[in-house]
Design a protein around this nucleic acid. Sequence first.
RNA 1: GGGCGCAUAGCUCAGCCGGUUAGAGCGUUGCAUUCACAUUGCAAAGGUCUCUGGUUCGAAUCCAGAUGCGCCCACCA
Length: 727
Amino acid sequence: MNSQYDPKQAEEKIYRLWEKSGFADPDKLPGKRTKKFSAMMAPPNITGSLHMGHALENISVDIAVRMKRMQGFKALWLPGIDHAGIAAQNAVEKNLRKQNIRRQDLGREKFVEKMYEWKEKYGHIILDQLKKLGALPDWSRTRFTLDPEYAEAVRHAFIHYYEKGWIYRGERVINWCPRCETGISDLEVEYKEEPAKLYHIKYPLADGGFIIVATTRPETMFGDTAVAVNPKDGRYKKLIGKFAAVPIQNRRIPIIADRGVDMKFGTGAVKVTPAHDVSDFEMSIRHNLPRIKIINEKGIMTDESGVFCAGLKTGECRGKTAEELQKLGLLEKAENYIHNAAFCERCGTKIEPRLSLQWFLKMAELAELTIKAIKNKKTALYPKKWEKPALEWLKNIRDWNISRQLWWGHRLPVWFHEPKCEPKKDREKDVAKCKEFVVSEKKPKCEYCDAEFIRSDDVLDTWFSSALWPFATLGWPKKTTDLSEYYPTDYITSAREILNLWIIRMIFSGMEFMGKTPFKTAHIHATILTKDGKRMSKSLGTGIDPLLLVERYGADAVRFGITYQNLGGQDIRFSEDAIITGKKFCNKIWNATRFVMMANREKISDFNDKNPKPKTAADKKILIALKMANKKTETGIDKYEFGKVLHSLYDFFWHDFCDQYIEESKKQSADPKLAENTNRILFYVLTNSLKLLHPFLPFITEEIWDNLRSAGLKAGPLIIESWPRQV
RNA sequence: GGGCGCAUAGCUCAGCCGGUUAGAGCGUUGCAUUCACAUUGCAAAGGUCUCUGGUUCGAAUCCAGAUGCGCCCACCA
């Protein structure tokens, strides 16, 4: 053995050894294994490249799975990738724009072809990169959220909900991105503070007076169908039930009382535009108000906004309206005002709330189910502090808008009866029974006419399919053996920003379709920040590429460095120093091995893993320390406290074993009465340490193990070599 | 507007179900290399544990408040 460990020389060779062993596939693990452990990889998007978050997540799961595999569990870690709806579509659109092509130029079919080309090209890059980190999931079970079998699961889920009456179609004001031309969810909206003007506008009353409303968006005035005040507001009490006129249009609208109006904001009176504001829409339900759509899907004022603004962009209309109000003397004032403006998270365009026909999933019962599951610890959210925000979100949840006007994704299994049926003379009566749409797995035929059914253009929110991940990947809705063996899973870890987006939705999907929560523990891991506490972001150039670090220091050093700093839910200010510490540690392990091997030379083939008997105080001390390290590692990994465990293993190996015992052993070996026993203990502690360290530092430990086997050690590869027994 | 978290050595962080001289890594300083490893060993310097008040025989640790920083959630026109 060389005096230095060379990761470059070892890593690729070792990974091949693992792949060749087939042990990543739980079906191919040796021995009778009754205990199971399973985890699903959080599927990376087909866009983008590996970042520190992926590294942290997958290293963590890899550690847990490796220990379980060694402990004799039938351990499955299933990998995969996500089609990532809007994110992926935007990435490809952006790419096409470089060649001056818009998706509309290509048409849907051609565009989707381009999407698949992209997926073929980039989809597996991240997964391949994970290998460089030593991650060893069962590649033979890799899934993609648009696989035909997965699509079947998605349709099945949709139809299940629909038949339960939980999916409905309705007009709602939703967040609309005029650039992506699709509705997006609340969770895909980003708020940024922005200076604006708060316009105080006089709405004339019949008696010649005014009611003044405050708004940042005067152009939406043309869609007003009421003015609302708080019922307790003394200033306006006598006006409730009377009428005001929309300026410019002179259209009469009622003055209503609604408890949702904040008396302290602006003038205490608010214009109500039900088609273009979420809370106004809700008010319109409570008060049965008409809804006038004045902004179209591209963010242009419609004809319904009146000749005054029709055809203009909303921003242009705003200026023009303000001017006109000024002229008419109806603009009381326009004060500077900072407000939180909504932007599309994926493309940065300002959101235009819009009344639009969408599909929704009723959340009331699913939320109830999830709240119970979390409260009863069917799934433990860890750290525990995330329970409260999760429950809070569920308590106030609204129905989930599951439709998107995108081209990339699972199309709804909804079929529209189009074109409108042309009645045949002999069947005129039946035609009335033709359905507007049918929800069905396959294209239906109309019983009453010859019209075709055409599949809905809408696709499902990407999270609708991700929500099924823990069981759709195992073959659901078919009753597969994988499903019965590996569902529910034990562990999942994810970034906190997708707690609501993904984790919670997996929980209720699991409850609904499988009757059990999909994982026993959901671990919300820390965010890795830059050294000065900034967010790592590719666009800001603050990101660190984990692969570059692997190149520079070796995979084990990177795994060490990340895990060593991952001590809890606290954000990590990432320091490369920890990786250097890891590299040094690898070298320490390497050289300790060299020493122990040299001490034992010819005798390696004689060793078994029976407990040696301590003869000196130092012997006793190191054997106890090993026992403690073993116990701490086991219980620590079972609690997913990876950083803590690694700290204690580091201290044990470096200080207890190398600094103290190895030094002491040099003296003991000089005594012929102690020499042999001492060497035995050295070997015993070393080999058991390698086992304990293997989940964290798989390459170097396996490489060393390989050397020991070459030197005569009777053992299989470390990856399945049995975990040290606690005596 | 609600909620959560953090503040400990020059830097990054442990410790925090109260109890002997507050720990680690990196950095700094000194000494030590034929004898596993200089990617090393031994030793040292370095902290009024953010501030104020409270509980207690005793507080970095528990409680309240202040200050600073960060994050999440929310339909504030």
